[in-house]
């Protein structure tokens, strides 16, 4: 089972996305890479940054980056570990998380508002990746 803050985990998610017909359909118009930033909490001292290159319903690249300057993605979504955990456990609706700003998003908002369903399908894929969280 991949550990949540690992390169192995984000690559497993990438694979899940590429196998998902629902994601491919919902994100068919999506163009733009992402940083998913896990803000430090508890025993974490540094943020963990996942990079994903999402393009027309497919994941072209995904990796854990150690230096935020390594890429300059179009979108950045950040939240503390506990919020990500709730999203992946389906305890926090991702769209509701964005609306309450427990998940903070920066980037082209017009693109986001046209592709809300894609965000939901992406999280659906997250929930299907077997995940070991840091405190487990």
């Amino acid at each position: 089972m991949p550990k949540f803050l690992s390169d192995e985990w984000i690559k497993a998610l990438c694979q899940e996305l590429n196998q998902s017909e629902a994601y491919a359909q919902a994100a068919r118009n999506w163009e733009g890479d992402f940083y998913f930033i896990v803000e430090p909490e508890g025993e974490m001292t540094e943020p963990a940054i996942f990079y994903m290159d999402l393009w027309h319903g497919k994941c072209r690249d995904a990796k854990l980056v150690t230096d935020e300057k390594e890429k300059d993605p179009v979108f950045r979504m950040g939240a503390p570990l506990s919020s990500w955990r709730k999203v992946i456990a389906r305890e926090l609706d991702p769209v509701q998380g964005l609306l309450t700003r427990r998940l903070k998003l920066k980037g082209n908002m017009a693109m986001i508002m046209r592709n809300v369903k894609a965000a939901q399908e992406l999280v659906e894929c997250c929930t299907r990746v077997p995940t070991e969280f840091p405190s487990e």
């Binding site: 964005l98 908002m109 986001i112 508002m113």
Partner: peptide
């Protein structure tokens, strides 16, 4: 802002 950018996230 553009109209299509009106969003609840910011």
């Amino acid at each position: 802002m553009e109209p299509e950018e009106i969003n609840p996230m910011i």
